[in-house]
């Protein structure tokens, strides 16, 4: 009987683990890739931030299971870098670079990408460092947060960085959509969950929001991709079940944002 109960519990646990893993389909949870020492002009920099999930015991920069900054990492980054090196004349480092706001090292990487930013949390010093980074010429692209609640959480952090700078909706004519590819026909790019659900949205984020914060010269310093999941599109671009048009759109957006960040 005990053996039966143990077996049942083990089966249930295995099923739960499988379902949970399948739901995320993140092949590399807990994977800690080595930082590359290859030198190139451009290094794909992923922002490792402090999460506000501290109350749940997951606060920290670490590579722990719930470190939200590393969603889709590093496969999304590396697949994108393949496209970058293949489609542009940018000399991109083949592997990504993780940066954080704890040190000035971030200033060596003037373009940075952040995901799940509804969970980010800054100390005053970190917010100041990010503000200075952006005003000196750094560029931040944020992705993979959805719906009203995520937006408010994202803005809580953003207001620490820029208390007064407005967030604006980008128009088709904005230079960032034409710097490499003309992208007047943008659409919502869903995450990998689209394969199972057929939905392009998550939570209540029904409409993709292309937003930005500008500096005093009108240059975009924070490009906000709200209600979309470009990172997943890069990560699953090689999945035959993931629609090509979403992956292509995601690559084009990412490439435009990088070229914009390297020219403005």
């Amino acid at each position: 009987m005990k053996l039966f109960q143990a077996t049942i519990i083990a089966v249930i646990a295995a099923v739960c683990c499988t379902v949970g893993s399948a739901y995320q389909r993140t092949a590399d949870w807990g994977y800690q890739p080595e930082q590359s020492n290859v030198k190139a002009e451009f290094a794909w920099s992923r922002l490792s931030y402090n999460s506000n999930l501290g109350s749940m015991g997951y606060r920290g920069y670490g590579y722990g299971r719930w470190a939200t900054w590393q969603r889709d990492y590093p496969k999304a980054d590396r697949q994108f870098l393949i496209a970058l090196n293949r489609l542009t004349r940018i000399q991109g480092r083949p592997t990504e670079q993780v940066v954080n706001l704890d040190s000035d090292d971030i200033f060596n990487y003037p373009w940075v990408y952040a995901v799940q930013v509804q969970t980010w949390s800054f100390s005053d010093e970190e917010a100041k460092r990010l503000r200075e980074y952006l005003l000196k010429g750094g560029f931040l692209m944020v992705d993979d947060f959805h719906g009203t609640a995520d937006w408010e959480n994202f803005m809580n952090g953003m207001r620490q960085v820029f208390p007064d700078r407005p967030v604006e909706d980008l128009e088709n004519k904005d230079e960032i959509f034409h710097v490499l590819y003309d992208m007047d026909d943008r659409f919502q790019v869903p995450g990998e969950q689209y394969i199972r659900t057929g939905r392009t949205y998550e939570k209540d984020g029904y409409v993709a929001k292309w937003r930005a914060i500008r500096d005093d010269h009108g240059r975009i310093v924070v490009a906000i991709c709200h209600n979309m999941h470009l990172g997943d599109a890069w990560e699953w671009a090689d999945d035959p079940d993931y629609p090509e048009q979403f992956a292509s759109m995601a690559f084009r957006v990412g490439l435009n944002y990088i070229v914009y960040g390297m020219t403005h």
Partner: peptide, 26 residues
């Protein structure tokens, strides 16, 4: 595309006596 290009352009943009017209092979 490279960082030096970006930052040279930004420096020139703050100089009202200068107009940098650039052609960049993307």
């Amino acid at each position: 595309p490279r960082w030096e290009y970006k930052f040279i352009r930004r420096a020139a943009e703050d100089d009202h006596g200068m107009q940098v017209v650039s052609m960049l092979r993307t």
